[in-house]
Design a binder for these strands. Structure first.
Lengths: 115, 115
DNA sequence: CTAAAACTGAAACAATTGTTGAAGTCAAGC
DNA sequence: GCTTGACTTCAACAATTGTTTCAGTTTTAG
């Protein structure tokens, strides 16, 4: 009950088992191993995977998400969540700004060829 | 003088020769062939490649850009440019809206795990 | 005509984000 | 203790967007 298998994390987070293994390989989530070499995750794993999917919606790469989650302790306090929150927000706004810049260029009146 | 080689299109459009060949393979730009099988592009090719790069900034895939450029005749009139313009703009706005939706979710007050 | 520069296709490589399949191992219930 | 479902690793595959390298061909300038 204290720990979760790959399949349980997969179900709880709505991601496939192969993706869960991939995320563990990539360092997004940590696992211990049973004596028989099976992964066991702490109960926060599904939460972290969900955070990862939110970050993917924003457009972060797996490497960026790894770094993001690295700053999130096992039992995050409010400040930890706030930090994560702020980083995701900043990144989203940065990407929105990039798109706005592209839009401005498109609308600049110059021919598209000259951008 | 009426046609351009790969290298000339590359220089005029600021992308590499290998990318130019790739774009031709993928149908973004059209080429005729010399008797010696070398590509020759019409003078609009560099322009189309530039449009493609703008579209990439917006986030369109090569396939989407192919479709976009397919609607652009060899000598586009104002309406053709307007159509292209409108599609790019709409696509940019769509992606901006997606990011705003993600931002709204992040700011919804729910825990990130519950998104 | 010849030498150099640019071109050719084909294939391998690269990073990214996983999925699929095979063969074998572990864990849980009965 | 046996069966069954879930797990393991490893490798191959997939799509995307090109780059690199090879050996060979064409074009162009002189």
């Amino acid at each position: 009950m204290g720990t979760l298998t790959v399949g349980e994390v997969a179900r709880e987070s709505g991601v496939s088992g192969s993706a869960i293994r991939f995320y563990e390989r990539e360092g997004l989530i940590a696992a211990t191993r049973t004596s028989g070499n099976q992964r066991r995750f702490e109960s926060d794993a599904a939460c972290r995977v969900r955070v990862a999917r939110v970050a993917q919606r924003i457009g972060l790469s797996v490497g960026e998400i790894r770094d993001l989650l690295a700053a999130l302790p096992l039992e995050p306090d409010l400040a930890d969540w706030q930090t994560l929150h702020d980083r995701l927000t900043a990144e989203a706004e940065r990407r929105i700004a990039e798109l706005h810049a592209a839009l401005d260029d498109i609308r600049s009146g110059r021919r598209l060829c000259d951008l």
